[in-house]
Design a protein around this nucleic acid. Sequence first.
DNA 1: GGGATATACTTGACTACACAACAATCTAGC
DNA 2: GCTAGATTGTTGTGTAGTCAAGTATATCCC
Lengths: 167, 167
Amino acid sequence: MSNQLLRDQESQAGKRGAVDAWVRLLRGHAGMRRTVTAQLQADHGLTVNEYEAMLLLSHAPDGRLRRVDLADSLQLTPSGVTRMLDGLRERALVDKAECPGDARVTYAVLTDAGAAKLREASCSHIAAVGALFEERYSKPEIETLAELLGRLPGAGGESSCTPCPSG
Amino acid sequence: MSNQLLRDQESQAGKRGAVDAWVRLLRGHAGMRRTVTAQLQADHGLTVNEYEAMLLLSHAPDGRLRRVDLADSLQLTPSGVTRMLDGLRERALVDKAECPGDARVTYAVLTDAGAAKLREASCSHIAAVGALFEERYSKPEIETLAELLGRLPGAGGESSCTPCPSG
DNA sequence: GGGATATACTTGACTACACAACAATCTAGC
DNA sequence: GCTAGATTGTTGTGTAGTCAAGTATATCCC
């Protein structure tokens, strides 16, 4: 075995753990998302991103957010946001609103129907997500996992706080 | 505040951590994947799934795998695998092969060109992934993260071991 | 042997994104 | 005030995936 080969394998060895974490992040995300999406779609006709967008809107002042902020929070491109909101608007779950101070921005606003839809969906959704995690992790493990995942790019520490105000 | 509302919020409180972990998994995955995909696409013209598929093939006996097993490992649907392999086949990176014992299955086989492509891509890819994790986590934290993520559905404990045999 | 059921894969139609190019508006510097 | 550049959003086009339906083969059980 050449020295070059040896050095390659040594330098790679250090990355083993990271690659392992990466692969599991990929597969674990895919598996979880499939399950959660299926439930959300079947029960409420929403995609994960649509749900998350409405949730973000529901927590925003006046139930409205600039599209660019929505894109940031959801890790979507601007065009992705435009198209997702088009879909929600067709179903009258959100609406557009102009910004008085800046004619470039068009707010996305949660409609009453959208707020109702969100309330309707959130209980079963939260229960489903909770169950999926709680059958795999202890409470402290969930905390640890959340903390670690929060350091990933775009997963910003800010938590999406509890909805479902028993409405 | 009604008793009903109180009860709702209590029962929800327990799910807070799980929902938090879920949201961060979503966003963190999206952010990481975008970065990694961009690098892999720009430098080698491969998607993450294509890379992972070729990596799995390279570790399989005879460099071949049934499509259904590939689907399982990659958390893709059968049709997704068919289409991804179509793309790789057009570029001559994989090929089809029949199974002597079962006429239903068509193996995906890594071609020599595919193996070369994988070797070419893996070093920079592994380095990039390693860097992304190591700038955010200590080594033990990476271990913890990998262990926790490994419990998610589809993220099966089996690690994807180190390629890039300095070829 | 022969039909019912299960497994492996492909195809057609659709969806949810991405990227690139664009239009509109705002802001700064002169 | 005016131009240069940055910011916000939309649209055209492409792609990677999904689901539902279909084909082909294998297996099980009478």
